[in-house]
């Protein structure tokens, strides 16, 4: 059974159909991308998936259970983590603390254990700190554990957001334009990081991305959205050759993507 199974999802804002009758399915351990022009409904799709918006109708089954109508924190606890299009870190907290907040759902310390610093509390905190450091290094952050998140340069903030999402040990990782604003070198590095996350941690990844180099390189499946509807899905090769996609949006993008690939 698929890890994520969405059928006939709908979400409207006023008269605007942000998501219309979208079906989507993702197998455990895959890397998939959602692409589409601005305003196609991609981020709304993520927000509906993570519970920030409640869909008007449709079914979302994650890991065998329906998650429609659950609060975002409950959905996060079920194993969906995400990053945001415009980075949303806890600015005034340190890098380590940001990652520790990511582990929130795994902490078991009680009020009494916290107040009296009982052994269980101390062990849990020490273990969490150790894991957080590991994650920091895993995403390529070094020697910045005590820095405030707001003081990190842009690329590191993106990486920290990924580390924070990984800290929850999710089954599914949603990445909203993770390569936005990065130079080609950084983009290449972060693309490799995503592949490692899938290969080494076994985490299923779904990403929204405009950078076709990233999309074509790592996606095993691509879902194309336009005006709230899914207009195509398939492997990168299929999407590249899909006339509907080229017509609707990828017209320029596909050419650019092929061009860049031929250069590479």
């Amino acid at each position: 059974m698929a890890l994520l199974d969405i059928t006939r999802l709908n979400k409207t804002f006023g008269g605007l159909k942000a998501i219309s009758e979208v079906d989507f399915s993702l197998e455990q351990g895959r890397i998939a991308s959602i692409i589409g022009p601005n305003g196609a409904g991609k981020t709304t799709f993520f927000n509906a998936l993570t519970g920030i918006y409640r869909p008007d109708s449709g079914q979302i089954v994650f890991n065998g259970k329906s998650i429609v109508g659950l609060r975002p924190d409950k959905i996060a606890a079920r194993g969906i983590s995400r990053t945001f299009q415009n980075i949303r870190l806890f600015q005034e907290m340190t890098v380590i603390e940001n990652i520790l907040v990511g582990m929130h759902v795994h902490f078991r310390q009680s009020a009494v254990q916290t107040l009296f610093r009982l052994p269980f509390f101390r062990d849990e905190e020490a273990e969490a700190e150790r894991k957080a450091l590991e994650l920091m290094h895993y995403v390529g952050l070094k020697k910045v554990g005590n820095e405030l998140a707001k003081n990190l340069p842009y690329g590191m903030q993106r990486r920290l957001e990924i580390a924070r999402a990984l800290a929850a040990e999710p089954l599914l990782l949603l990445l909203d334009e993770p390569a936005a604003g990065m130079n080609p070198h950084e983009t290449e590095e972060i693309t490799r990081l995503f592949q490692n996350i899938r290969d080494e941690m076994g985490i299923t990844i779904l990403l929204i991305e405009h950078d076709m180099r990233v999309v074509m390189k790592i996606s095993e499946e691509i879902c194309v959205m336009d005006y709230g509807q899914k207009i195509a899905e398939g492997t990168p090769a299929e999407i590249r050759g899909n006339s509907k996609v080229i017509e609707a949006y990828l017209g320029r993008g596909a050419v650019a993507g092929q061009h860049e690939e031929s250069v590479a």
């Binding site: 993570t50 920030i52 609060r71 975002p72 924190d73 409950k74 996060a76 606890a77 983590s81 995400r82 945001f84 949303r88 870190l89 806890f90 907040v101 990511g102 929130h104 759902v105 924070r164 929850a168």
Partner: peptide
């Protein structure tokens, strides 16, 4: 928003 997405 970020906090609730971490399961808080």
């Amino acid at each position: 928003t970020a906090a609730i997405a971490q399961g808080i």
